[in-house]
Amino acid sequence: MKSLSKCIFIILFSSVLTLESCKEKDSCIISHFTTISYGTSFGECVGYCIKTIAISDATINFQKTAHNDKSTYPDFDCDDSFPGFETLKLEIDIAAFCSMEPVIGCPDCADGGAEWVEISNSTHALRVTFEYNNAPEEFSSFIENLRFYLQRMEASC
């Protein structure tokens, strides 16, 4: 009976370890991503409070939306060409991104705003949200580039 208990314990322990290693692999399966999205939002805001860009292949899409008053601030959407997607993809450290917490700090607390970055493919998405203008150090230059693209799209659309 004692050896049966040991066997059951070993089987259960091995199963837990296997499941945990699968979870880790699944969270970073995103290493083959096809889209980079970035956005900002402010909860206590009038007007276009949410602005996003989605970059994939050779296209960049810009959107801005309001929380309320859609008649004065209707959803806005604009596309443009973006030939630098492959170069931009190389700027992100996938291992560091996968190891980050999904929420860093207190995004949009006291209406301080929030920023987020998401990498995705057709089956998975991984997003990190952080306080506005307080990007994680590992991604500060990458975030600066995304901020630039967002501002450029807003100005040109």
Rank of each mutant, 00 (worst) to 15 (best):
K2W: 10
K2S: 08
S3P: 00
S5K: 14
K6L: 14
K6I: 12
C7A: 11
F9P: 00
I10E: 07
I10G: 01
I10Q: 08
I11D: 06
I11W: 08
L12A: 15
L12K: 11
F13W: 11
S14C: 10
S15Y: 10
S15Q: 10
V16Q: 09
T18V: 15
T18M: 15
L19R: 08
E20V: 15
C22D: 12
K23D: 14
E24D: 15
K25R: 12
S27Q: 14
S27P: 05
I29Y: 15
I30K: 04
I30W: 02
I30P: 00
S31W: 02
H32S: 09
F33C: 01
T34E: 14
S37M: 03
Y38H: 03
G39V: 01
G39S: 01
T40C: 00
T40N: 08
T40S: 08
T40P: 03
S41N: 11
F42Y: 12
G43R: 08
G43N: 10
E44K: 12
E44T: 11
C45Q: 06
V46Y: 13
A54Q: 13
A54E: 14
I55D: 04
S56E: 12
A58D: 15
A58P: 01
A58W: 11
T59Q: 14
I60V: 12
I60R: 08
N61Q: 15
F62V: 02
F62N: 02
A66Q: 01
A66V: 01
A66T: 03
D69M: 07
S71F: 14
D75W: 03
D77K: 09
D79K: 15
D79A: 10
D80H: 09
D80M: 08
S81E: 15
S81Y: 15
F82L: 07
P83R: 11
E86P: 02
E86K: 12
T87P: 04
T87I: 12
L88Q: 00
L90I: 10
L90W: 09
E91A: 13
E91N: 13
E91R: 13
A95P: 07
C98P: 07
S99T: 10
S99D: 13
M100C: 09
M100E: 13
E101L: 12
V103H: 05
I104A: 04
I104L: 11
G105M: 04
G105K: 02
G105C: 05
G105T: 03
D108P: 09
C109E: 11
C109T: 05
C109L: 11
A110F: 15
D111H: 10
G112W: 09
G113A: 05
G113V: 04
A114E: 11
W116R: 05
S120T: 02
T123I: 14
H124F: 10
A125T: 07
L126R: 13
T129Q: 13
Y132P: 00
Y132K: 00
N133Q: 13
A135C: 03
P136I: 05
P136D: 05
E137M: 09
E137V: 11
E138A: 10
F139T: 00
F139W: 05
F139Q: 02
S140T: 06
S140K: 10
S141L: 11
S141P: 04
S141K: 10
L146W: 06
R147A: 02
R147H: 07
F148K: 14
F148G: 04
L150I: 06
L150G: 02
L150P: 04
Q151K: 12
R152P: 00
R152W: 09
A155H: 09
A155P: 04
S156E: 13
